[in-house]
Design a protein around this nucleic acid. Structure first.
Length: 489
RNA sequence: GCUCCGGUGGUGUAGUCCGGCCAAUCAUUUCGGCCUUUCGAGCCGAAGACUCGGGUUCGAAUCCCGGCCGGAGCACCA
């Protein structure tokens, strides 16, 4: 009876994991890697891989390797080498080690040779279509049975062969029920200039080969990858077996769909080159730098991705959720200011002299009075948002109540209570001392307006809440005009 | 077509391995109300889900079979 009670308690203790589930296998000396292809800066999809790797390594006190997978010269975008590390840093992920696959060609050659010597790989000079035909029918190609000597000889000649005339294949199971697994290519000839290697090498490893070799040699204990690599994991297992290597824990996660942005890195790049997008941080793009520019906090991304976990089911990320979480974080950190979009100048008739020139103070944050206040001066002529310029009774926040009737704007009273009683709109306004400003919205449209004078104290990168307008980040100041990027309501 | 993988509210998740404590968790969202010189925050309340059909069982989100739907792979890309 007593034993039973103990067991129940243990079972319960194991549950209730916050965020990411425990990793399978040993948690000692965990080594993981984030291995992007340097084709552009990191986007939200990359975060799906980067965040769990970073979090697990932190949790288990392990080691994180950033491995740049630049083994396809056609898909290397040079600035990305730099950008990837910047983006990771923004996410709060600092790799313990950075390796470039382009530095490791000699290692790949060495392993390839060993594989040939073991009889586990062969040089294949079949035409691609011919090989596929054979493979699809579970038939080995004539080269599969070549002697080790013959293969080694061809391997030596490999660098002098014509592109496309030969490949090195890893033997798997030619009758494997999934045709994709059968005798896959490990090395091929590439006549292309590599940004880091120039034309030093002609023999390039295929992803499955270099990835396996590096995962093993760099000591990975756990490999996190998208489920689109499921078949690749299967392929790679053959290589591990041939070499007698231990297979790391392969963990696959589902695809991350982001509503509205279906933009691949290559499409984004095209758009940037054609001038459709202003750059990699255009607010319409799903890059981390675009998100950052809008004032979205990196913790939000970490939190969301962690919550998703590493399960195989696909998930869709909604902006609403991002905004909601971001709002929770910045709402208390960020100060309030007035921004009048599409300003309309009004001249308040019958405004009593004692109201004019009055200095008005508002707290930078209503819940944190200790942060201080901002001041502005009420004038007979002020600017209000075009949207709020409608017939009726409105209160200018902390100032006076006015009556709008067509072109006539009349002073009504100054008591807040009166406005409250009739449930009048209470709106923001600015005077002539305001600063020209514009806000770049999430669809890249621009809202012109005026922000209050005290915005002059803001620094680039500051996030503010424009009352009744939304959250925005100060991006730059050009010719005295303040340019903000809109985050969300 | 072949191979493989998934399917819990609008969205993301917990629970599924080891069936009962699940008339299903939490977050976001939406809608009310209160409060508030922001349409923010806060407080209170509400809405909303186990893909479908069989089976096993006293009992199924959970196990089995089948359908449906969705996704991925099927390269000398990663």
């Amino acid at each position: 009876m007593e034993e039973l009670g103990v067991q129940v308690e243990e079972k319960k203790k194991q549950k209730k994991e916050e965020g990411l589930a425990e990793l399978p296998g040993s948690h000692d000396n965990v080594v993981m890697r984030f291995a992007p292809n340097p084709s552009g800066p990191l986007h939200i999809g990359h975060a799906r891989a980067a965040v769990p790797n970073g979090e697990y390594v932190k949790r288990y006190n392990g080691k994180l390797v950033l491995r740049i997978e630049d083994t396809d010269p056609k898909r290397v975008y040079e600035p990305a080498y730099e950008m990837i590390q910047e983006d990771l840093k923004w996410l709060g992920i600092i790799p313990d080690e950075v390796v470039y696959q382009s530095d490791r060609f000699e290692i790949y050659y060495d392993i390839a040779r060993q594989l040939i010597e073991k009889g586990a790989a062969y040089m294949c000079t079949c035409d691609g279509a011919d090989f596929k035909e054979l493979k699809d029918n579970c038939k080995p190609c004539p080269h599969r049975d070549q002697s080790v000597e013959e293969n080694l000889k061809l391997w030596e000649e490999f660098p002098n062969m014509e592109a496309g005339s030969a490949v090195l294949r890893v033997k798997t199971d030619i009758a494997h029920k999934n045709p994709a697994i059968r005798d896959w290519v490990a090395m091929r000839i590439v006549d292309e200039e590599h940004p880091r290697l120039g034309t030093k090498y002609r023999i390039y490893p295929m992803m499955n080969f270099s990835v396996s070799v590096d995962d093993h040699l760099l000591g990975m204990t756990h490999v996190l990858r998208g489920k689109d690599h499921l078949a690749n994991s299967e392929k790679q297992k053959y290589l591990y077996d041939h070499m007698g290597w231990d297979i790391p824990e392969f963990i696959h996660y589902g695809r991350l769909k982001m509503e509205d942005i279906a933009l691949s890195t290559s499409k984004a790049k095209e758009g940037i080159e054609s001038g459709e997008y202003s750059g990699w941080d255009d607010p319409r793009l799903g890059t981390l730098r675009a998100i950052a520019r809008r004032g979205i906090q990196p913790e939000v991304i970490t939190q969301l991705i962690s919550e998703m976990g590493v399960k195989m089911a696909d998930s869709a990320l909604s902006w609403k959720k991002i905004y909601g979480l971001n709002r929770n974080i910045i709402e208390q950190k960020v100060n309030r200011y007035f921004f009048v979009p599409e300003p309309v100048k009004i001249d308040i008739e019958g405004c009593p002299d004692e109201e004019i020139g009055v200095e008005i103070k508002r707290h930078l944050h209503p819940d944190f009075e200790e942060r201080g206040e901002r001041t502005f001066v009420f004038e007979k002529q002020v600017y209000i948002p075009k949207k709020d310029y409608k017939d009726g009774f409105v209160r200018l926040m902390d100032a006076v109540n006015i009556d709008i009737d067509g072109d006539d704007v009349k002073f009504h009273s100054n008591s807040f209570e009166e406005a409250r009683e009739v449930r009048a709109k209470i709106i923001q306004w600015v005077s002539d001392d305001s600063i020209p400003a514009k806000v770049v919205m999430d669809d890249a449209s621009i809202v012109e307006g005026l922000c209050e004078a005290d915005c002059k104290d803001l620094e680039i990168g500051d996030v503010v809440q424009f009352e009744r307008f939304g959250f925005a980040r100060l991006d730059s100041i050009e010719d005295g005009e303040m340019i903000f990027y809109f985050a969300h309501k």
